[in-house]
Every structure is written in structure tokens, then in C-alpha cells.
Design a binder for these strands. Structure first.
Lengths: 210, 210
DNA sequence: TGAATAATGTGAATAATATCACATTATTAG
DNA sequence: CTAATAATGTGATATTATTCACATTATTCA
């Protein structure tokens, strides 16, 4: 898998196609054309075909794509046909809410560690059964439990230091909810989720038209 | 303001520059070059200059940019030098956590309405003083309180119907946390926040190298 | 079987975006 | 005051991403 250099935008769109295809599956649709899928995802049909073409041929000419096959093929492409273990660092409002949020589980992600520094929280059991550990134990526990991805939901001020510790513990993927740009070595891939930036985009659009 | 067609990516980057500049302000930096700012934001220096050039000349040749002036100029560009009122629809784990999360306030956004359908929640007072109303009252309250942006944190199944109601109530901007693609008329601008998609990108990178 | 239809896969064309490179303008120091 | 240095603003260039358009292949129906 993976021949040419794949645009990041393609990867993101593949996730979106997959989500939509999974919904279609639930509605018992078993074949779909790039045209119909494109409409549902809000993209151009050729875009879908090109995105998939980076990785092979998955459709049937004159017919379309078999939905359940394509879901699995996209999962293969993205590396989702295996479990991924997550560690949450920072169990404030947001962190706790995310752990309780069903969407991670639904897509095959599993929380296997949770950290905070608040003595009041250490040792507490979360609704999913996980016990909150002190950040001091981060490296050891992350290695022990084979965590793959760290999620940072600490205040901005702590994010960089947490990121450093995650990297030290051997983590190569970070999902960062703290509103700062964290610096990591090239071996580590960071994705940022900053909703106030999205709000800024909305504000811009509302202020100055499309 | 706004002469040529501005790339969406530019708008997003302007938010990021602004965040970084605000941090610099707190550290009493008062002038910065595009080169240093670029490094901190992880972009190319020429990119910053080009992004700003869409809107005017904000720097001083041979010197750089005055940090506090530039923050304000970017706020003007994005339409952030005014209050924006938000309505939260869906007060489950995520919605409640977001309302309590300080980041919206910090950037000038204000929650002025909150809606749910759970009878247990209706009438309850949130930590910020807001009282939760039934979604049936959405249109009336949104108009009354001059809400500008709706935030959807309902289950996926409810998101489209909530979006429809928001549009009916005159809302032109939606921040959607539900993991579905919602359909709205062109007058309404939607931004999606889907962290499982970001996780998928991380999974891909971890599986197949950069 | 063969013609009509449908929809993929893909090279070529187009459009959008990012980067380079340098002319221009401030500042500083001798 | 002049030369050296620093850093912006921007036309030109390079790169990347998207869309078009059509050849190809599967299916259906007469």
C-alpha cells in the first residue's frame, strides 16, 4: 500500500467517505456510485475516484462500489483494521466528557490509560472502568499497556510538557485539544483540534459573506 | 475589507497567527518578524506575508510586525472585534463540558442559550448561569437573544433536524460536533469538528510512516 | 448476441496554493 | 551622510490539488 505521496486531504476525505458508507450500510444500501456518494459527502465524484485510485481499484465499472467491501478497503488503507489504544492526559471537563463519549469506541479506539495531576482525581475510577493515574507514572504505564496515541486535554500551559513526556514514552501520535501549537520531533505526528479556530472561521464568514 | 477571493486556508492560518501573537504579547514581545512567527506556527514565512497581503500592509519593512497592532488587525480581518453569541444544542457530556470550558469566553464568544430535549435537564441552571430550555423553544429564544452561531452536540441522529431548526431560526453559522455531514442552505456556513477523523489520520500515519 | 446504458479509472487541463527571489523600505552604526 | 543589514511586500515560478472528459468495462434488455 501507499505508492505515490498521498495528499493529506485525501486521507481526511477517506475517513469521511468511510463514515458515510457505514451509515449507508446501516440502511442496507449495498452498492453505490461515486456520484451518489459524492453528493452525500459534499465533494466532486471524480475526487472520490481519484482518492481511491491512489491505493488501487475498488469499484466495478458500470456498477459502482460495493459498500461493505469499500468500507473494509478504506479501513485497510487507513490502518484501521486493528485495535488502537489511547491514553487521555488531563481529566477536566473536556477530557472526562471525551472518555465517556461513545464515538471513540464506536470506531475501534480504546482508552487504556488516563492521567491527571490533581490528587483528588488520582485513583478514581472512570465510568469505563479505567483508573486515573498520576502523570508521573505516564511513561511506565504507557509502555506497559502499549498505548499508541496520546490525547492532550490539559490547560494550554501544560500541553508542551505533556507532549514531551508522551514522546519520551515512545508515543508517535498525539491528538491535541489544548489551544497551543506543540513542538514535537518528526517521528511524532500531531493533529490539533481547536474549536475556537473553527468559530473564528464562522465569524469571518458571517461578517464578510461566503 | 476582502478584495480578492480569500482561500479558506488563509483564514484558518490567520486564527493560528493570532493565537500565537496573543501568547507572544503575554511574554511582552512587541515586535516579531514573519520568520520567527512562521517558525512558531509551523509555516513558511512567505506564507504569512502573503496571507496578510490579501488584506493590506501590516508590517514595517526592515523591522517586522508590531504584535499588539497585528493582533487587532487580524481581529478586524476575521470580524472578531465584536461580541458573538452562541447557542449550545445538546447538553450531554460533550455539550456540558464545552460550556464549562473557558476557551470560548477567552476568545470573546458568549453562550447565551442552551437547549436539550431531556425533561430532566430542562430548567436546570448551568455553572455559567444559563438555564436549559427545551428545543421546542429554540426558534423563539434564538431570535430573542440574538444568537449568531449554533453549536450542535447532539447524537448524530438528531443533528440534521437540529440544523434545520437553527436555519429556520435565522442562524447562519453552525459548529457541528455530531459525526454526520449535515445539509444546510448556502446562506448557512457549517464547520465540522470530528475528532475521530483526526484519529484516523493519526492511525494512517502511524501505520504507514509520514 | 448485440446495442444501449451506466459508471469506473485515468491522462490531460485547469485551478488553487505555496514558495522563491528580489526590489523596496527601515534601521543602525561608523 | 552613507553603507550595511534586516525584513517586508509582491511578481514570477513551482507545486499541488481538483475537475474534466473520455476510453474502458460491466450490465441489462431486446
Amino acid at each position: 500500500m501507499k505508492f505515490a505521496k498521498i495528499p493529506m486531504a485525501t486521507i481526511v476525505r477517506l475517513s469521511i467517505y468511510m463514515r458515510t458508507l457505514q451509515e449507508l450500510l446501516e440502511d442496507d444500501v449495498d452498492v453505490i456510485s461515486s456520484e451518489r456518494l459524492a453528493k452525500q459527502c459534499g465533494v466532486n465524484p471524480a475526487q472520490i475516484r481519484k482518492d481511491l485510485a491512489y491505493f488501487g481499484e475498488f469499484g466495478v465499472r458500470g456498477v459502482g462500489y460495493r459498500v461493505n467491501e469499500l468500507v473494509n478497503q478504506i479501513k485497510d488503507i487507513l490502518g484501521l483494521n486493528r485495535p488502537w489504544n489511547l491514553a487521555m492526559v488531563g481529566l477536566g471537563n473536556l477530557g472526562s466528557a471525551l472518555i465517556r463519549h461513545g464515538n471513540f469506541i464506536k470506531h475501534g479506539y480504546m482508552f487504556t490509560a488516563a492521567f491527571d495531576i490533581d490528587p483528588q482525581k488520582i485513583g478514581k475510577r472512570l465510568p469505563n472502568g479505567l483508573i486515573i493515574n498520576h502523570v508521573d507514572e505516564l511513561e511506565e504505564i504507557i509502555k506497559q499497556r502499549e498505548v499508541h496515541v496520546g490525547i492532550i486535554t490539559t490547560p494550554a500551559s501544560e500541553a508542551q510538557s505533556v507532549a514531551n513526556q508522551l514522546v519520551l514514552a515512545g508515543i508517535n501520535g498525539i491528538l491535541n485539544f489544548a489551544p497551543v501549537q506543540i513542538q514535537v520531533p518528526d517521528c511524532c505526528h500531531v493533529e490539533n483540534v481547536d474549536f475556537t479556530i473553527k468559530l473564528d472561521s464562522i465569524a469571518y464568514h458571517l461578517s464578510f459573506g461566503s
